[in-house]
Design a protein around this nucleic acid. Structure first.
Lengths: 216, 216
DNA sequence: TCAATAGTGTCTGTTAGACATTATGGA
DNA sequence: TCCATAATGTCTAACAGACACTATTGA
């Protein structure tokens, strides 16, 4: 039976200041591409909704459920191992520490993928840059407790630009999104860092004026 | 031949401080729903890319090309007149003045649509709220010249909240996105308003710190 | 003691929001 | 003259960015 579409997953996890993306074997060997983003070929009208399908595929692939997932979009260009006319992509993040020395997780920057999936990955990273402002992506990219330095590094990964330490912490405090725990963590030389947990109290009340960052 | 998917369009245009959405006849008469968003049922792998397909369908439907269009996403829930497992939706805006007393354009707020398309419309309006910051949607929702009051009203429609007049104009001036023309337009009683045109000079250089507007 | 990192205090320039004021037309 | 709307000036509070400083650990 001919496939209707494929459902593709961009599963990301930060490690060493870079995004790692989960891949599976089974892509066509043509042109030296042996790995691909996890996908599921759908050949009949699915009984479940797309998000539920994506969630179960992610859980099956990684062995754990992701805490945040959203749709990236539908893609029709380029080549895809399932050879479907379109692919619907979802993105999910897994906490820092998920990536072990597993060859399934590879650096997103240098990932070699079928051309459609390469476009999916690029679109995903561009989408995260905007979505980070409205969704708690960074917090779900970390374990339940984390240092503020780790949090800032994830934000810098998401936004693809450096952030100012003091300003970052002030804004974070004003937003009342995290709470300190009583635990501290020493790494290497310097002063130990306090561990925080994600505990949003309220949405930032002051909705500020328009920003005009219009791409031309 | 069974359909692979449908391509749906959310064609929006502002009028009287509200969004109007373009609909076409031909939806099933069941449950009193007689109109639907314009769509195209795709039964074989398309020779064109999705954006090109959407663009040509929009041009054919409205009789004019839109100046801005982007994908909303893929939708699988609910009912759809094409009865496809998924629908890929695109959104485009048409300038104020496109909507005449044509029954094809109806108020988006009170639109009665097949359930999947209703979800598409809702997701679209939510998406625009975030996209307006990064893409010149508002300018493409107006004719080539417009008053700053019209521009602010479109932004208020997009953002779904009122804006402060003086701050809006200051930010607009700082962003160097518009240029005044020599024309003025008098409407009703008060002082005539100067007409402006969209003429972006530069991207706003100062990329400011993180905003934490995290939805919980 | 030194190096390295965590965390904070202060200063300054920018800007959003409030408010007031002037400008300019029609009724 | 009065009213409605456009456009702009001023003040203030909030905030981002820079910088410096203190705090606390390991080497």
């Amino acid at each position: 039976m001919r496939n209707l579409f494929s459902l593709d997953l961009v599963l990301l996890s930060p490690r060493d200041g870079e995004w790692y993306v989960c891949t599976a074997a089974g892509a066509p060997k043509a042109r030296g591409i042996s790995r691909a983003l996890p996908f599921m070929a759908v050949s009949k009208a699915p009984s479940e909704a797309l998000p539920a399908l994506a969630k179960s595929l992610a859980t099956k692939t990684v062995g754990a459920a992701s805490r945040w997932m959203t749709q990236v979009g539908a893609f029709s260009d380029g080549t895809h191992p399932a050879d479907t006319p379109i692919s619907v992509a979802f993105v999910a993040v897994y906490p820092n520490g998920t990536v072990q020395d597993d060859e399934g997780w590879i650096r997103a920057e240098s990932a070699v993928l079928p051309s459609r999936q390469k476009a999916v990955l690029k679109a995903t990273l561009g989408m995260l840059k905007h979505a980070v402002e409205h969704e708690p992506i960074a917090f779900h990219s970390l374990p339940s407790t984390f240092t503020l330095r780790e949090l800032q590094q994830v934000y810098e990964l998401l936004l693809e630009r450096p952030l100012h330490k003091a300003s970052f912490r002030r804004s974070l405090q004003a937003a009342q999104l995290v709470e300190p725990t009583k635990a501290w963590r020493a790494e290497g030389r310097g002063r130990p860092a306090q561990l925080y947990k994600f505990a949003p109290r309220r949405r930032r009340g002051s909705v500020r004026g328009v920003r005009f960052e219009i791409a031309r």
